[in-house]
Each structure stands twice: as structure tokens, then as C-alpha cells.
């Protein structure tokens, strides 16, 4: 019986292809099926907020520049990591991250909780030329970010796609994306008040790159770095030794 069956598979190459699919994909699908529902295992964090348009734009710069090649955003459940970087990362903290940037290599330190640890001024100086701030650093200089104005035009489209994918952006947020991005980096304008209204009072509204007249890619990236690990406080409540997130340095 088995013999007959095998001969038959072998006779036709299509049968053979089906056998490979059976082994790899049917087997694989039985195996990986739970992963499609794995979001069901993600913990609740009612205080979790979405990225503002400026932070999302900053995240997209982080993605564009391939920062994941040297920086992780995933603090493992190991004592030395928790002591070095802060409470270990929870799944919920990256639930709005597309793609996730957990990374696989730390040529530089983990960034999952970098938000609020350094001042904006430090970040800008560091990105302009890392060796001005950390002489031993081997990170590339990103001075061009400060020279490049941020593209605000398509931010509504970005938010709209995220909304389609299930990120809880309201229609109002989508509509005002460009204005909010501008407002977050240019304080003391009418646009700025809209940001706090829509994304919460705790949202950091300031001239991240130190220049309050225009919005650059530097503004966006620093805004993103400053919110990393600060979208929810869930991680601080979940650890064995509860603590509060540090007061942000401005």
C-alpha cells in the first residue's frame, strides 16, 4: 500500500510538490496556527496611548535608517538587563508597532526605555555627531536629519492605514495629522493645543531639535526616542519590584 502510494507520488512531480507542502506548510500551519491568535495573549494596558503623528513620523525615520541593525527595543527577563535598561518589555508595549523593532543585535544599547533618560539637547547633539557626546562611540552621524524638513503631507495617509489595521486612531486624529505633527514640534501655537487635546495632556509638546520655527526630521526622531517606553506604565506595575517611571529630563 505504502509502496503504491509512494510510487504514485513520485510519478508525478506535482504529487511530490504536494508532499513537501504537506510536510512544511500543513505541518507548519498546524504548528504556527496559534501564532495568529497570539495577540489574544497580549496583556491589557488601558492607559496605553497611540503614537502621535510626529512620533510615528519619527518612528518611520528610525525604520528608514535601519536602526534595528544595532539597537534592540526588547529588554529580556534577565536581571542584568532589567538593572541596566529598566523593567522587562511587555508584549502590549509594542502592540501598535508595525513593524516591531525588537532587533537582534546590540552594537549600541537597548532603546526600549530610552524615553526621558536624556534631554532633547543631548539627543540632538548625539545624533549630530555621536562622538561629541560619547567619544568611544562607533555610531554614524545623522546630522542631515536636522537639515531635512519633515514631510507632513502624507501623514494623514499613514494614520489612515494604521486605522484600517486596527490602531485606535480617531477620524479626527487622521484628519489633523499634519497639523498635530507641526504643533507638537512648534509649541505656543494653536496647533500645539490640538495635540494635547487629542493625545492627552502628558504628550510632550516642544521644539525637540531646539529650533521652534520649523519641523525637521530631527524633531520627529527625537520625539519618538523620547516617547519610547512611555506609552504605558504597564511594565512598571507588572514587575516583582514595582517602581514608577523616572521623571522625564527636558
Amino acid at each position: 500500500m505504502a509502496e503504491l502510494f509512494h510510487r504514485k507520488i513520485e510519478r508525478s512531480s506535482i504529487g511530490f510538490a504536494i508532499a513537501i507542502v504537506a510536510a512544511a506548510s500543513v505541518g507548519g500551519i498546524i504548528e504556527i496556527a496559534p501564532l495568529f491568535t497570539i495577540d489574544g495573549t497580549v496583556e491589557e494596558a488601558p492607559d496605553m496611548r497611540v503614537y502621535t503623528p510626529l512620533e510615528l513620523a519619527g518612528r518611520n525615520i528610525y525604520v528608514r535608517e535601519g536602526c534595528y541593525a544595532c539597537h534592540s527595543q526588547m529588554i529580556r527577563t534577565l536581571q542584568d538587563e532589567v538593572e541596566r535598561y529598566g523593567p522587562y518589555s511587555l508584549a502590549v508595549e509594542s502592540k501598535y508597532d508595525r513593524p516591531m523593532q525588537w532587533g537582534s543585535k546590540r552594537t549600541g544599547p537597548d532603546l526600549a526605555r530610552i524615553g526621558g533618560k536624556y534631554s532633547d539637547f543631548w539627543h540632538v547633539a548625539h545624533l549630530m555627531n555621536p562622538r561629541d557626546v560619547v567619544p568611544e562611540s562607533n555610531m554614524p552621524a545623522y546630522a542631515y536629519l536636522a537639515r531635512t524638513p519633515l514631510n507632513l503631507n502624507d501623514l494623514s495617509q499613514h494614520l489612515a492605514v494604521q486605522q484600517t489595521l486596527g490602531v485606535p486612531y480617531t477620524d479626527e486624529m487622521v484628519e489633523n495629522a499634519a497639523r498635530d505633527a507641526y504643533g507638537q514640534a512648534v509649541p505656543d501655537t494653536d496647533f500645539a493645543s490640538g495635540v494635547s487635546e487629542r493625545y492627552g495632556e502628558a504628550t510632550q509638546v516642544r521644539a525637540f531639535d531646539g529650533v521652534a520655527t520649523q519641523v525637521t526630521e530631527m524633531d520627529a526622531l527625537v520625539a519618538y526616542l523620547q516617547v519610547l517606553g512611555r506609552l504605558t506604565t504597564a511594565a512598571y506595575q507588572n514587575t516583582a519590584a514595582p517602581e514608577l517611571p523616572p521623571e522625564p529630563v527636558e
Partner: peptide
């Protein structure tokens, strides 16, 4: 984000994307 844009968002979020 648009047919005229190179930028896209993966449908997998966070932990699912990681897996």
C-alpha cells in the same frame, strides 16, 4: 499608504510581527 508611495505598514503588529 498609497499606490503612489513606497511606504507600507505590515499587517502584523508587535508580538505577532516578531513571531
Amino acid at each position: 499608504i498609497a499606490w503612489s508611495s513606497a511606504k507600507s505598514y505590515t499587517i502584523w503588529p508587535g508580538v505577532q510581527d516578531a513571531m
